[in-house]
């Protein structure tokens, strides 16, 4: 067993895990934050994307012990307060989801994209940047629209609603 000290969505945790535990397992099974999903286990689908120290990470690819001391944001902690983060609102407004399974990873990747590339994202950039996130329901068209709209909506609101992460 190893002890991982980790801050998730602003809350500190000290969690005992076996060494092979993945970050996504710590998040889902130890902290019971089940909005982060596992779709493939092979780093392809992107349903497990979270932010680790402000960078998007596929949490099925990172050992929990590697996240010792890190600040993690999951989909549950993206919005500040009871409202929606602009990217979440854009996904709803533009029908950027159907079954919802890939959506948390899509939204976390999209916010990371804005953090790195700015608020004016053209369609080609968005499509290329979403290479690591797979959806099987929507055909991506509305996801791309949602990301572009969400990026613009984030303008002036700081990099993310949780700017302190």
């Amino acid at each position: 067993m190893a002890t991982v000290n980790i801050t998730v969505n602003g809350k500190s945790h000290s969690v005992d895990v076996s060494p092979e535990t993945l970050l996504v397992e710590l998040i889902r099974e130890k902290l019971r934050l089940t909005g982060t999903h596992v779709g493939c286990d092979t780093s392809q689908c992107g349903a497990c994307v979270v932010h680790v120290d402000s960078a998007a990470v596929k949490s099925c690819t990172m050992l929990a012990v590697s996240a010792d001391g890190a600040k993690v944001t999951t989909i549950e902690g993206l919005a500040s307060g009871a409202g929606l983060h602009p990217m979440q609102a854009a996904f709803r407004e533009h029908h950027g989801l159907q079954c919802g399974f890939c959506t948390p990873g899509m939204i976390m990747s999209a916010v990371d994209m804005v953090n790195r590339k700015g608020n004016e994202l053209d369609e080609r950039t968005i499509r290329e940047e979403l290479e690591g996130n797979i959806c099987r329901c929507t055909g991506y068209h509305n996801i791309v629209k949602a990301v572009g709209a969400g990026a613009r909506a984030m303008k002036g609101g700081g990099k993310t609603a949780r700017a302190a992460e």
């Binding site: 889902r28 099974e29 019971r32 934050l33 089940t34 909005g35 982060t36 999903h37 596992v38 999951t74 989909i75 549950e76 919005a79 929606l84 979440q88 996904f91 709803r92 407004e93 029908h95 989801l97 079954c99 919802g100 399974f101 959506t103 948390p104 939204i107």
Partner: peptide, 20 residues
Amino acid sequence: RRKEDQRFITGTGNYTSDIS
């Protein structure tokens, strides 16, 4: 607007493997 979107975009959906 779909009623189910609120929980899906906030990570509060309830898929089978979310149940313990």
